[in-house]
Amino acid sequence: MRIARPPQLLKVRSGGLTPIIVILAVLLVLLTARQPDFLSPPSLMSFLGRSAPVVLLAAGQYFVIVSGELDLSVGSLVTAQVVIAARLIDGDPSAGWPVVVLLLAFGIAVGLVNGLVTTLLRVPSFITTLGMFLILVGAVYLWSDGAPKGSLSEEFRRLGRSAFEDVPALGRIPYALVVLLAVAAAALVLTRSDFGRTLVAVGGNPRTAELSGVRVWRAKTMAFVLSGLAATLAAVLIGGYSGVSFQAGAGLEFGAITAAVLGGVALGGGRGSVVGAMLGALTLETLFTLMNFYGVSGALEPTVQGAIILLAVAAASFRVPSR
């Protein structure tokens, strides 16, 4: 029997990493053409540190999207976490770590609710997490009477704004980048674990997964919990970097979704890689930096994101027929 080996081109088309790497490379070339020292260590390190939160969120979003769902609540979760942290810490330097633990618990809880409502109550995740988004926004306003109260301690902010200084060759390595690398490594291990592979199967064909003994509800709920955890870490970094504001997480959910889709993660589930999602986030940040250098208004960012989602999804639908 003749075996149809999928040729190389096909791998490129079906959710591989090649397209996103090519796009990122092109953007970097354009960027260095304009700003020759962009790739020098100090500037690159600071860029990576600044990009860390959205890269984290893209990694979290990967798990949700690949399982066939969507998490729209991460942006407002980031805001909520920052506001909660400020109020609980209120300048007290010793409160840092206990509050981080508390935030992690809150992130897990939000993920659990998202997951269980989606799987057990069978509410589409688009609606579930949209509801969660609104609930969190409203609750935070209510809780803080319309203006953020308290303040973050220097201790707490260090993770988001400080760095290992005077590292040979590289200079300054932001803590945020270290957090990012640790999370990226953990995410990569997770996607290769039984859980990670099963999650892709759940997104690819939930019926087959169920009939193979997979607890689909549990796998999807875990994905939402991971997204909640990623949002919590992002919140700690963002709070540290830019301080307390009701706008802390605004729009980040779309950034994360755009990044994942750009990185080849198929909306609807079953296809994509966490590395792709994270590279997608870096690409998006590079694009925004580039736009900035070329004097394009930052107000265009949502428009660009929207266009990317539409284009990426359209491009993904030009798939090789499986005969």
Partner: peptide
């Protein structure tokens, strides 16, 4: 509809049940 995960690899498909149970 119920037997395969079309877009996953041969190995992932074959490992699905052992991974789950």
């Amino acid at each position: 509809g119920e037997g395969i995960v079309a877009e996953q690899s041969v190995l992932d498909n074959a490992l699905l049940a052992v991974r789950a149970v």
